[in-house]
Amino acid sequence: MPLARTLLALSLLAAGLSAQAADWSDSSIGYRYGSKFAEPYNPQDISKNILNLTHASGYKYGTNFFNADLLLSDSKDPSSAGSKDGAHEVYVVYRHTLDLEKVSGSPFKFGPVRGLGVTAGFDFNTKTDAGYNSKKRMLVAGPTLMLDVPGFLNVSLLGLKESNAPYSTFSGTATPRYDYKFHWMLTAAWAIPFNVGIPLSFEGYANFIAAKGRDEFGGQTARETNVDMQLMYDLSGGKNTFKLGLEYQYWKNKFGNDSGGPAGKGAIAKTPMIRAEYHF
């Protein structure tokens, strides 16, 4: 099956990243669940089970981050027209940040900023559903400010080059790969530990994405806001840890679909979730 081959390839990639010489590394498998997910053009609340594989590491000149999500929807987001089976999706993110101080030997510290980097990477997804069947491909690159906080807080301005080649099961029409207009994303990612008698961490990301011109069907895209944050409790401590927590995602104009247009309420997600992670 294509999905099985994709998951095998991602597992091998994550293993390869772990095998590189690293100053530090953290890999995890996780699970999260919510019942208020949304998809554009679908007015119903959707339940999803999500499995994830994550790897982060630091080496002599910078850091790597890799995440692969397997998203399994319920029947309200069907796998095909008239099916009672839910859609399934794989979404992958990779980022590499080159630390300019480590490369040049000169510090880049000012105010609350402890370092300056250059980030590059990609997103891709494949989804099997009743309508769009996304095949997103996106390259990203831009500068990153590393702020001086416990844990980390990185803020980046990334240029995005995105394309898609969907297939409509309703019309039976495959759309040739379409390139959106070059656009920008202001993004932040963080993991900040704190202790109030129990070991907690506040983690997440926030993406503010400019409109990307017209879509492959001629419709005007909209600016996106996507904030995903979680409060996690470390139940075990040490390197091999088990974390449990609560997560919340707010996503307006999902994938550039205007929530005030035909995409409707499905283009806005307000999704509480439970989340569990095992780190090794």
Rank of each mutant, 00 (worst) to 15 (best):
N195G: 00
L100N: 03
Y91L: 11
F242C: 01
D85R: 10
Y91G: 08
S27R: 03
L3A: 09
R275D: 12
Q249F: 04
K243R: 15
N133M: 06
N257T: 07
G121P: 10
D77Q: 09
I46E: 03
G264W: 14
Y59V: 00
T54C: 00
N195R: 00
S47C: 00
Y233Q: 03
L70D: 04
D258F: 04
L100T: 08
L139Y: 11
Q220I: 01
Y250G: 05
T175Q: 14
D123V: 08
T241H: 07
K243H: 01
Y31C: 05
S259N: 14
P150C: 05
W184P: 01
N67I: 07
P143W: 06
S57D: 12
D26Q: 14
F242S: 10
K36T: 02
D129A: 11
A211V: 01
L51R: 01
D215T: 07
G16V: 06
A188F: 10
G159H: 09
L186E: 07
N52F: 13
E247H: 11
E224A: 09
F255L: 10
L17M: 15
F152W: 08
G82A: 11
A222T: 02
D74F: 12
G121E: 03
S163G: 15
R275G: 00
A87Y: 15
N164L: 04
A269S: 15
K109S: 13
S134H: 06
F108T: 02
L186K: 05
R275V: 15
T119L: 07
G264C: 14
D74Q: 05
L53F: 12
G117P: 07
V227I: 09
G105H: 06
G151W: 13
A174I: 06
P143S: 06
G121Q: 10
G245V: 04
N64S: 13
A222Q: 13
T119C: 02
K252Q: 02
T119S: 15
A81M: 11
Y91I: 06
A206E: 08
N257Q: 14
N125R: 11
G30K: 01
L200E: 00
R95S: 12
P43I: 03
L3E: 13
Q230I: 08
G34I: 10
G237T: 09
T97L: 00
V103G: 05
H279L: 04
V113N: 08
A120E: 10
K36C: 11
G142Y: 11
P43R: 13
R114G: 11
S47Y: 00
L72F: 07
G115L: 03
T54P: 01
F182N: 09
T6S: 14
T221R: 14
L160P: 00
N240R: 06
G264R: 13
A174F: 14
P176G: 09
